[in-house]
Design a protein around this nucleic acid. Structure first.
Length: 348
DNA sequence: AAGCCAAGCAACCGCCGACAA
DNA sequence: TTTGTCGGCGGTTGCTTGGCT
């Protein structure tokens, strides 16, 4: 079971391959096949270890390797597959003909990881980021989100960015709502105004009123912001309507969910997590068009992958990287959703 | 022109599971 | 059942290149 000595054998060459060595390796494999990699170097007249030969062949010299820039479609596919499979580069590579696991891994580390970070998505969990950097970029993200309706639907790069922005906004709303539901301090109107949409502001303010109407000074129907405290529903431009206006089917699915929740006693947005997590038999994903993907935090992706029987081919057919992130949003129940953090930002 | 720095990528390292003896 | 070998994988290193000062 021990590690094979392979490259530790002294006198064997390491480092970059010369064109002559490449020729020798290609020539031998063309004539004889690689056979035993361990035996190959001697038979081919190479002063390399078998492992080095195998790596050079599989990552560089193989005739079916596709070289050059990754296409937009390939990028999307890698992101989608990574959200399900995690760092299983070899499995990801099986879905990209002509690309090697090493190439995909390098491309992920040098390009895609940064790209996701810039879009406010955590490249490890594929969840929207909730740190201060994201909040600092909020106006930019919101602007991108507002542009989404005007965009060419086939422009994948812009669409992905806009989806990420939408998700960031939704996640922010979710977190803000939780804070408002648990605090009596008045909300920070400057921050609320950054959300830019009257229905959203109404929704958040009414969440605040709903949760605080039992306290002194509000119970008499007066509120410093001039809103109707005794009947907050009169103020409410419902969030369901807001998300229903989104063209993306995912937001339609959310609106449907909210509608169902509204029919339940004591429902509010924070119920969404419980609803989603506790009722897989009538899940959002099955009732609507959101693919049943799993989030891919390092600690959970493997287990989820096997338990939920997610087929990476489904990712390819639906080709939706945002669904994964959307579902991740529904599962926000960890430290990233910590009330304390949001209270610091939101409450005066 | 020279030096510095960061990005990109080929190659290596070390671990693991499968399998045969 | 144990042990050794092999191939495969993911993480990491270090060289090359290009941009900037």
């Amino acid at each position: 079971m021990g590690r094979s000595p392979c490259c530790d054998e002294f006198g064997l060459k390491k480092g970059p391959w010369t064109p002559e060595e490449d020729d020798m390796l290609v020539d031998y494999i063309k004539r004889h096949g690689h056979g035993s990699w361990r035996a190959l170097p001697k038979l081919a007249g190479l002063n390399r270890c078998g492992k080095s030969c195998r790596l050079r062949w599989t990552n560089y010299l193989r005739p079916d390797i596709k070289r050059g820039k990754f296409s937009e479609e390939e990028e999307q596919l890698i992101i989608s597959l990574h959200s399900v499979l995690g760092n299983k580069w070899s499995q990801i590579a099986t879905h990209l003909p002509g690309r090697t696991d090493n190439e995909i891994k390098n491309y992920w580390n040098t390009h895609l990881k940064k790209k996701l970070l810039q879009m406010g998505i955590d490249p490890i969990t594929h969840r929207p980021r909730t740190d201060l950097n994201l909040l600092a970029n909020l106006p930019h993200l919101l602007a991108a989100a507002n542009l989404s309706n005007l965009m060419n639907p086939w422009d994948n790069a812009l669409r992905l960015q806009a989806d990420a922005a939408q998700l960031a906004k939704i996640q922010l709303l979710h977190s803000l709502t939780q804070v408002l539901n648990t605090s009596t301090a008045p909300p920070n109107m400057d921050l609320l105004n950054q959300l830019g949409s009257a229905p959203v502001q109404d929704y958040l303010l009414n969440e605040y009123l709903r949760s605080n109407s039992q306290f002194d000074g509000l119970a008499n129907g007066h509120h410093p912001l001039g809103l109707n405290v005794t009947d907050p529903n009169q103020n409410l431009s419902s969030f369901s309507n807001l998300v229903a206006q989104q063209p993306n089917h995912e937001y339609q699915a959310m609106a449907n969910t909210f509608s169902r929740l509204e029919g339940e006693p004591n429902s509010n947005m924070s119920n969404i997590d419980n609803y989603h997590l506790s009722s897989s038999s009538h899940s959002i994903a099955s009732a609507n068009t959101i693919p049943a993907l799993v989030s891919a935090s390092p600690e959970s992706s493997i287990v989820n992958q096997t338990e939920s029987k997610v087929n990476p081919n489904d990712i390819i057919s639906t080709h939706s990287s945002t669904s994964t992130t959307l579902e991740a949003w529904f599962n926000l129940d960890d430290e990233a959703n910590n009330d304390y953090y949001w209270k610091e930002l939101l409450l005066e």
